[in-house]
Design a protein around this nucleic acid. Structure first.
Lengths: 206, 206
DNA sequence: TTGACAGCATACTCAGTAGTATGTTTGCCT
DNA sequence: AGGCAAACATACTACTGAGTATGCTGTCAA
């Protein structure tokens, strides 16, 4: 999918992205300042601007990484010979734990989901956001194909595919909105949660 | 529910709230400035600060109005004698058109849903946000009761109520994320959409 | 040893923004 | 008429925050 987009990111850059994701999640991407991120790193602005040309680019790379996380895990579990409902279940059972494992990143990308359009973007930032759009479309079409296959063979009820797709995608991302890791959390909590949501999702389509 | 909170808002104040909702929706609540809102009104800051003590209070009142819209329409359609599934269907069929009718307001309140916590809030702002929290809880418990009733009489499958509730609420608000009013939109589009989502929601619980 | 460059920190600039202080107009009551 | 608020506009202030210019330090190759 993206061979040239994996130029083995440096550890320092990854550390910055982790901090940015957490700070952007907590304060909001627009409200948070570069100094906030630097302070959370125990560093200063200089470190961040050495690796990223602008705040918009930093935000974009956080979102890009969020998309990459699920794109590396979910597509492999799809099997051409399997039943659509089974494929969908496996996709969801993979998607949700991976999303909750990298929660800050997805809380940030969901903020942009609301439709907030950047103000003054450079050409480089627009390029990054275009790539995010591409990866998001690729991920959506993965679910769209399974949905369509299920409607074709009658295992899913016939309905507007786009509406069903958007609703499904939001349903499986619902935990991003309310989930908060607890220290005394049962071992199998995330697994149980994933199963419950997979059940709901499949049932909503039948 | 809130008799003292309806001191018949002036038309000018409502106009400011409408403009603020649109600008906050487009640019993001934090990134948008008071001057942006004023410019969209064809006015200046003075007008806004005459009606609202601060930007945070303006944002809070936008969110409060968003909650009020659905709280005035949905609760009346609930009937104690009706079947839970029928009650839920009617609630969704009322919720979605009302939300899409007042879309900018709900796009703003969803931004705060992502968990963005305000930085420095005055006592007055905290009071407003507390009231929003109350109305949101009241609205949620409306759905929770219907959910619980359905599980009690066996018409809904037994499962974790909180998870099901949060998922349901996000499902019926899904159009807020992607809906965009079209000029050549079919007459019954919103109605059809509401029916489809109501079907999905009820099916996901059975 | 010495350059030379990556990887930061420090110390600025400057545009934008929340908030205030103070005019100015318009209706309205008497 | 006249006065008196409400409902704004104008013109500030003070400050935050993105971006830059430059300085410092280790490392590594020649």
């Amino acid at each position: 999918m993206s061979d040239p987009t994996k130029p083995k990111m440096s550890a320092s850059k990854a550390e910055i992205l982790d901090a940015a994701a957490e700070v952007f999640m907590t304060l909001g991407a627009e409200a948070a300042s570069i100094d906030d991120v630097a302070r959370h790193l125990g560093a200063t602005k200089g470190r961040i601007y050495h690796h990223f040309p602008s705040k918009g680019a930093l935000l974009a790379e956080v979102c890009l990484r969020a998309a990459d996380f699920v794109l590396q895990k979910v597509p492999p579990v799809v099997q051409a010979t399997a039943l659509p409902a089974d494929n969908l279940r496996n996709m969801i059972l993979t998607h949700i734990p991976e999303v909750l494992r990298t929660l800050p990143y997805h809380k940030v990308i969901i903020q942009s989901y609301v439709g907030v359009q950047q103000k003054s973007t450079t050409a480089h930032e627009r390029e990054l956001f275009a790539q995010i759009q591409l990866e998001r479309k690729a991920y959506e079409s993965l679910f769209r194909q399974v949905l369509q296959a299920g409607m074709d063979d009658g295992s899913f009820r016939a309905q507007d595919v786009s509406v069903a797709l958007q609703s499904l995608l939001l349903l499986i991302n619902a935990p991003v909105f309310w989930y908060r890791p607890r220290d005394n959390e049962p071992e199998a909590f995330v697994t149980d949660l994933s199963v419950q949501l997979a059940d709901m999702a499949v049932a909503s389509l039948q």
